[in-house]
């Protein structure tokens, strides 16, 4: 049985069809990168996996059960920004995840329970390379460090699925390379299912085990919203040569122009 089954889902807002006939299966441990022109519905798809948007038609199954229609612990998320809590230090951001689990009403731990949580949190900080920044607030951290913290925070709950919505979009190229290394290390260690949206096709090829391109197949020049996008390419990365890369690049460029027109 597949880990995630996407059964012919559609997403429409009134007459505006965003996604149509999206069908696919995902096995445990796959690292899927998703590319597509902006506004093509890739974020909508990610939000459906997250549980903040619901398919208009069709179903998404997680482990054979309909995916919960609100965010929950089994699906971690890292957004491009605002992913960590500004009023807590790096360490407190991680300790919080344990406090939420163990202290239902106060949501605070004390004494030995706190020390244990503190230890766990410091281990996680060290894993993402932030041990020296434990007592700093997010605004004192660079963009890359904030995203490291956001990833660490999501991993504290050991989710089955990690959703990344253009997590490195705002970072400098050099920092981005460091982040790629980190995310691959984490994926290798945990074999967690990763869905990552990216603008950068090369990044998609470098990171994933499987690349999806979300785009429209059918176009109607008179009614640009009449048809939705779907998965147009679903390629196992690694079995892919430069000509395919160019082909996808051109098709994306084409729909980008159409979008602009």
């Amino acid at each position: 049985m597949s880990f995630i089954e996407v059964n012919d889902i559609w997403k429409t807002y009134g007459d505006n069809v965003v996604l149509e006939r999206v069908k696919t299966n995902v096995h445990a441990g796959e690292f899927i990168t998703i590319v597509g022109a902006s506004g093509c519905g890739k974020t909508t798809f990610l939000k459906m996996l997250l549980g903040t948007e619901y398919p208009t038609r069709g179903k998404i199954l997680l482990n054979g059960k309909p995916i919960p229609q609100e965010p929950s612990e089994d699906r971690g998320i890292v957004f491009q920004k605002y992913s960590v809590f500004p009023h807590l230090t790096a360490l407190q951001n991680l300790v919080l995840t344990i406090e939420l689990e163990q202290s239902r009403w106060l949501a605070h731990l004390f004494g030995s329970a706190y020390r244990l949580a503190d230890e766990q949190a410091r281990e996680m900080l060290a894993m993402v390379g932030l041990q020296h920044a434990a007592n700093q607030y997010p605004h004192e951290l660079s963009g890359g460090m904030q995203q490291r913290l956001a990833i660490a925070q999501a991993l504290m709950k050991q989710p089955k699925v990690l959703l990344l919505d253009e997590p490195f979009g705002a970072l400098d190229p050099g920092i981005r390379a460091d982040m790629h290394e980190l995310i691959l290390k984490i994926w290798n260690q945990t074999k967690i299912n990763v869905f990552m949206i990216t603008h950068d096709l090369k990044e998609g090829f470098y990171l994933g085990t499987r690349l999806w391109v979300i785009d429209k197949i059918r176009h109607d020049a008179q009614a640009p919203n009449a048809y939705g996008a779907t998965i147009t390419y679903d390629i196992p990365v690694g079995q892919c040569d430069n000509s395919t890369l160019n082909e996808i690049d051109q098709s994306l460029e084409h729909s980008r122009k159409e979008h602009a027109a």
Binding site: L50, Y82, T97
Partner: peptide, 10 residues
């Protein structure tokens, strides 16, 4: 994003 993140942390 913050409120959603908190929910994914349980």
């Amino acid at each position: 994003e913050q409120l959603i993140k908190a929910q994914t942390l349980g």
